[in-house]
Simulated scan of single mutants.
Amino acid sequence: MYVVWVASSLMTAREVQEVCAELRNHPELIEAIEQEAKAKLVSMKEAASQTPTAS
């Protein structure tokens, strides 16, 4: 599984390393983040499909 982690410029390199180490040591956190992102995506798609379109 490949995980893309996007860090803002406000994070230092050390902070990014700490977050990555935490995720490496606890793969269940990756699963939880992924499930949350999927749920958000599904709700966004549902909200978009419920909007009326112009005919």
Rank of each mutant, 00 (worst) to 15 (best):
M1N: 14
M1L: 13
M1W: 06
M1D: 09
Y2C: 03
V3C: 10
V3Y: 05
V3A: 11
V3G: 04
V4A: 04
W5P: 02
W5F: 15
W5I: 15
V6H: 14
V6R: 12
S8A: 13
S8R: 05
S8V: 08
S9G: 15
S9K: 14
S9P: 05
S9H: 06
L10A: 14
L10W: 13
L10E: 07
L10K: 14
L10H: 15
M11T: 09
M11A: 14
M11P: 01
M11I: 09
T12W: 07
T12Q: 06
A13V: 06
A13E: 07
A13L: 05
A13D: 11
A13K: 07
R14L: 09
R14W: 15
E15A: 04
V16P: 02
V16K: 15
V16Q: 07
V16E: 14
V16N: 07
Q17M: 04
E18C: 04
E18Q: 15
E18H: 01
E18T: 10
V19Q: 00
V19G: 01
V19A: 02
V19R: 00
V19C: 01
V19M: 03
V19T: 06
C20P: 01
C20T: 13
C20G: 05
A21L: 10
A21T: 05
A21R: 02
A21K: 04
A21H: 02
E22N: 14
E22K: 09
E22A: 12
E22T: 04
E22W: 04
E22C: 00
L23R: 01
L23T: 06
L23K: 01
N25R: 11
N25S: 13
H26G: 01
H26C: 02
H26M: 03
P27M: 05
P27W: 03
E28H: 14
E28M: 13
L29E: 02
L29Y: 03
I30F: 03
I30N: 01
I30A: 00
E31D: 15
E31M: 08
E31A: 07
A32E: 11
A32Q: 12
A32G: 09
I33W: 09
I33L: 11
I33Y: 13
I33K: 12
I33Q: 08
I33S: 10
I33P: 00
E34A: 10
E34S: 12
E34T: 07
Q35I: 05
Q35V: 03
Q35L: 09
E36V: 06
E36F: 11
E36R: 12
A37F: 04
K38P: 00
A39Y: 03
A39G: 15
A39L: 13
K40M: 08
K40W: 08
K40F: 15
K40P: 01
L41C: 08
V42K: 11
V42R: 08
V42P: 02
V42F: 13
S43L: 11
S43H: 12
S43Q: 13
M44Q: 12
M44F: 12
M44N: 06
K45R: 10
K45C: 09
E46C: 15
E46T: 10
A47D: 11
A47E: 11
A47M: 05
A47S: 06
A48R: 08
A48E: 15
S49C: 08
Q50P: 00
Q50E: 13
Q50T: 07
T51C: 14
T51I: 07
T51W: 08
P52C: 00
P52H: 06
P52S: 07
T53S: 15
T53M: 11
T53V: 09
A54P: 04
A54F: 06
